[in-house]
């Protein structure tokens, strides 16, 4: 595995510009000519001041942002899928087989108990019900979420608790390519350390991880390489 690590993610000359129609068609460039790659078993950190488009890069790979130009190649089996050109069904298939994404905020599903939110993610990964529940319990325990909360919907949880549910959900599916957006942003040292352990395990299992880590000590513990993201020249143009 270590000797010939496969390239799992390759971003070539990618740019992203928003067109803000509500502001007279103003163009807002957020990412410009970015090229990077991530191999299996490797964690790459995107660094740079806030507002430089780091989250936008992750969203382009996940397909929740469109890519303005360039290619976003994600390995699915023997082939690469270019997310920048793929249709919705291809992107959905890629998400259910290959791409994992831990966003900054938990999008709450009403009424569903937090353990079931996580088990559902494991089931999508092909676990049977017992295995899915076991994975969910193990993740919640490792992330120190009090057991009395497991049966409750996460809507009323604190920010840090919701984030741990979000992380558990992301890690319950063992995806070969993982995107992590500030996974430890509202966590204390103990829980940050638990997340570091989870990331290391996924790396050891061969996952390619691309992340944004505001916390330098977390970044140093997980990242094999850093990619510095330069702020895009903001020449705001109108139609």
């Amino acid at each position: 595995m270590q000797s010939a690590a496969a390239e799992m993610l390759r971003i070539e000359n990618v740019s992203k510009t928003f067109t803000l129609h509500l502001r007279g068609g103003m163009y807002l460039p957020v990412v410009s000519s970015l090229t990077l790659h991530v191999n299996a078993g490797e964690c790459v950190a995107l660094n740079g001041p806030s507002g430089t488009g780091k989250s936008s890069i992750l969203k382009m790979i996940f397909g929740s942002y469109l890519t303005s130009s360039g290619s976003v190649l994600v390995r699915a089996g023997a082939d690469f899928v270019d997310v920048a050109k793929a249709g919705p069904l291809e992107v959905l298939a890629l998400r259910s087989s290959t791409l994992g994404y831990v966003s900054q905020f938990l999008r709450v599903i009403p009424r569903v108990a937090c353990i079931d939110v996580i088990a559902a993610s494991a089931r999508e990964d092909g676990c049977d019900e017992d295995e899915a529940q076991a994975r969910a319990r193990s993740l919640l325990a490792r992330l120190n979420l009090p057991e009395r909360l497991w049966g409750l919907p996460p809507a009323t949880f604190s920010g840090g608790e919701q984030q741990r549910v979000n992380i558990a959900r992301g890690f319950a599916a063992h995806r070969p390519v993982m995107l992590l957006d500030e996974p430890t942003a509202s966590l204390d040292a103990v829980n940050s350390a638990a997340v570091v352990e989870l990331i290391r395990e996924r790396k050891a299992a061969g996952a390619a991880i691309l992340g944004v880590f505001h916390d330098a000590s977390v970044r140093d513990k997980v990242a094999d390489r850093n990619v510095e993201i330069q702020p895009v020249e903001r020449s705001e143009v109108c139609d």
Binding site: F18, T19, L20, H21, L22, K59, G63, S64, Y65, L66, P88, V91, L92
Partner: peptide, 21 residues
Amino acid sequence: IGLADQVLEDPQDPYTQLLVS
């Protein structure tokens, strides 16, 4: 028309941008 999260997070059409905002 597009993926649900893409249409809501990165709407392209002027009207969709108005609706989402």
